[in-house]
């Protein structure tokens, strides 16, 4: 394996390790999970093609984020979506927030987090899981979830807040106990 191949593998591995961070960034710009997945997937192809442009010693995450940003613009163009002034201002604020505070987690830490999250979700009662699935997987509105599970809109909002808090506390306790 020559030096170029090694660099390609190194950059691609790092980019894949940051997939969730990049997906989070794309979601916060696009407000749609599937479109964000498309943008990140397309960004990965750009990483494979342009890995030699990455400057050693700089942040892979920041470099990948810049690629994702371009792909987000392409996704919007494909969807022929005009961006309003408030959206553009928000995009800039989000960009600044991610540049300032998004840090790369170690791959092992991410895996531990992932496993703890899976374990905690298994403990959520069926009705709670149904609500979480409806919001996170089906991307249903609060109103649609309410219709599906027979709850008022207000009850759905409270339930989602409580469920997310409980799951997060469970994950933190699990990881805290493991350390």
């Amino acid at each position: 394996m020559d030096e170029s191949d090694q660099k390609r593998d190194r950059v691609l591995k790092a980019a894949l390790d940051y997939r969730v961070e990049l997906l989070a960034y794309a979601r916060s710009l696009l407000g749609n999970y599937a479109a964000a997945e498309d943008a990140v997937q397309d960004a990965m192809l750009v990483v494979v093609k342009k890995f030699d442009q990455f400057q050693e010693g700089t942040s892979v995450l920041a470099w990948c984020r810049a690629i994702v940003r371009l792909e987000v613009l392409r996704v919007r163009q494909r969807h022929r979506r005009e961006t309003s002034l408030s959206e553009r201002l928000l995009d800039d604020a989000i960009d600044a927030a991610f540049a300032e505070f998004q840090t790369a987690q170690r791959h092992e830490a991410v895996q531990d987090w992932h496993e703890a999250l899976e374990g905690c979700l298994r403990r959520v009662p069926d009705r709670g899981r149904k609500i979480l699935q409806a919001r996170f997987t089906d991307e249903f509105s609060y109103e649609q979830i309410g219709q599906q599970v027979g709850m008022t809109l207000e009850a759905v909002r409270k339930a989602l807040f409580r469920l997310k808090k409980q799951v997060r506390q469970c994950v933190e306790t699990t990881l805290g106990g493991a350390q």
Binding site: L23, A24, Y25, H114, F136
Partner: peptide, 14 residues
């Protein structure tokens, strides 16, 4: 940033 990443991890696992 923290909330967005947490939400995305939760969405991935679900």
């Amino acid at each position: 940033v923290e909330q967005v990443q947490w939400d995305t991890r939760l969405a991935e696992v679900l």
